[in-house]
Design a protein around this nucleic acid. Structure first.
Lengths: 237, 237
DNA sequence: TGTACATCAGTGAACGCGCGTTCACTGATGTAC
DNA sequence: TGTACATCAGTGAACGCGCGTTCACTGATGTAC
């Protein structure tokens, strides 16, 4: 098996079979999404970018959206891995580890804008009801399902971090860990969405980096829970 | 002047001149954006929806993107107005007024999904440099400028609220009001983006409404600043 | 080791379609005198 | 009040283009015996 994913164009081996078209299509889509956003490319364009006839992609994906969904799924998997690495089992201490998660969150959105866009600006047809009219049942549904699972796994990392953090608090004033995780997630996502796109109209009014803004926000939030009392006036930095 | 904007199709007066095509195009775009997202319609489709020849829209907009930009501009204006109404001069007290702003934020995203989508998922061509090659200088640039201004005015409401809130704190422990405003904005936007779209994959795991989640988050945050000390254990509700 | 065959992955030609854009035009409106 | 004219807003026909999708096909790969 000629394993070699990515950048297969103009490769030495020119054979009738591409051998790695699926990966080549995903790679091409990543570049196009990064440049023009999801929805910024056509199925035919993907084929052209992979140096292949316009009918070839049909062997691997049903349509454009299936490619985006695949990218989103991979994105969530990588996202979960990077968040987990940043959390690092809560070492050296839960607050520091949580702040590292925050930085990892923004770092991911910065380093993988195409993945992030596919994950969070999915544009999946929203109202599509569960019509069981399709021939193969559980085709697109399975993709949706595994996409949702991948997203859940990423969130589970934040959820686990919130659990640990809350567990450190006095038993009688523990907020729901789920709520804490949702707040952290929303704040991170909000900062990423508003301030990370280059020239996003909002960027110029930032007094600091998005990373520092997020850290300050998390510190203030967590301090209120009774956690960060040790380093109090650090919050407004 | 036959003033009557919106829903002009099949109207009584059938004349050669539409009389209100610009508004009709905006209305049609609003419906299409709400149904399929920005980018989910073509210029020709807009013309068809307004019952007009495909060349007609060129009298009013340069292209698709100009329509979306116009909608975003109007959206920001309405957004600013609704936030200001919710803030209500900081009455009855700054914290309550700020929480009202939070609800207004989410209410806006709920009630005007098309406006919200046009405002925050603009998909403006990101890297377009300030090429002064165009014949009319300041054509598209003026639109961009006024769009940015409209966004600034909306943010200014939150900024003003943060100012008032911070002013209530002891002089020696006031955080930067700008930072506070940015945190509130990011949290609101994050919650709206993650949990307000129907079936957004994240919705089912919500233990409460997005509105309550946001209120709890703001209460916790603000309490840490030394504000909400009066109603302490309300934060985990 | 060699041969036959099934399967698989990509070809390339073809189709109908809707889009963006242009053009000379035409009918309605408003204004000057 | 009436007439001439400029301006404005929409027409409809036309164009070339790229897209999505299908189809019978073909060459490479892998497996059975």
């Amino acid at each position: 098996m000629g394993w070699r994913h990515g950048h297969g164009r103009g490769w030495g081996r020119e054979s009738y079979h591409h051998g790695n078209l699926r990966e080549a299509l995903v790679d091409a889509a990543l570049e196009l999404i990064a440049a023009r956003g999801p929805g910024g490319f056509s199925f035919a364009e993907l084929a052209r970018a992979a140096g292949v006839s316009p009918a070839a992609p049909y062997r691997h994906f049903r349509d454009r959206h299936a490619v985006v969904a695949e990218i989103a799924r991979r994105g969530f998997a990588l996202f979960a891995a990077e968040l987990a690495a940043a959390w690092h089992g809560g070492q050296p201490d839960p607050l520091t580890a949580l702040l590292n998660c925050g930085r990892a969150y923004l770092a991911f959105a910065r380093k993988h804008p195409a993945l992030y866009a596919a994950m969070f600006t999915a544009e999946l047809p929203p109202g599509e009801p569960p019509s069981s009219e399709d021939a193969e049942p559980g085709e697109g549904a399975a993709s949706d399902e595994s996409l949702k699972e991948a997203g859940d796994r990423a969130f589970a990392v934040l959820r686990g971090a919130a659990d640990r953090l809350v567990a450190e608090l006095d038993r009688d004033k523990r907020p729901p860990a789920l709520m804490v995780a949702l707040h952290i997630w929303a704040l991170s996502h909000g900062i990423a969405a508003l301030f990370l796109r280059s020239g996003c109209a909002a960027s110029p009014l930032l007094p600091s980096t998005p990373e520092d803004l997020l850290e300050a926000g998390v510190r203030i939030y967590v301090q209120s829970l009774g956690y960060g009392a040790r380093a109090p006036s650090d919050s407004a930095r």
